[in-house]
Amino acid sequence: MIEQIGIPTAAGTFDAIAAGPADGRPVLLLHGFPEAAVSWEHQVATLGAAGFRAVAPDQRGYSPGVRPEDPAAYGIGELVGDVLGIAEALGWSRFDLAGHDWGAAVGWWTADAHPDRLRTLTAVSTPHPGALAAALRTDDDQRLRSGYMIEWRQRGVTERRMLADGAEALRRMFEWKVPPSRVDEYVRRLREPGALTAALNWYRAGRPDGRIGRISVPTLYVWSTEDVAFGSTAALDTENWVTGPYTFEMLEDVSHWVPEEVPELLTGLLLRHLGQ
Rank of each mutant, 00 (worst) to 15 (best):
T110D: 04
T197L: 12
Y221L: 15
W102L: 15
D15E: 14
E151R: 15
F95R: 08
H128A: 07
A198Y: 00
L136W: 14
L121R: 08
A113D: 12
W109G: 05
P259D: 06
G20V: 03
A195V: 13
A10W: 13
F95Q: 07
G65I: 01
D141N: 12
L236A: 14
R155A: 15
L274P: 12
D139H: 01
D116N: 04
H114F: 12
T267L: 00
P127I: 09
Y62H: 10
R60D: 04
G65N: 08
G213Y: 06
V44C: 05
V55M: 08
R25I: 02
V222G: 02
G32T: 08
I7A: 05
E249Y: 03
R25M: 11
P245G: 02
P129H: 05
L236F: 15
L132K: 03
F230R: 01
G91N: 06
G213D: 01
V157L: 13
E41M: 11
A98E: 00
L28D: 02
A72R: 02
S63H: 00
T225F: 15
S125C: 13
R60G: 02
A111V: 02
A73Y: 01
T243P: 03
G65M: 10
A167G: 13
Y246G: 05
P26W: 08
Q59V: 14
S146H: 00
V258E: 01
L220H: 06
F33V: 07
R143Y: 13
W241H: 15
L47R: 10
L251S: 04
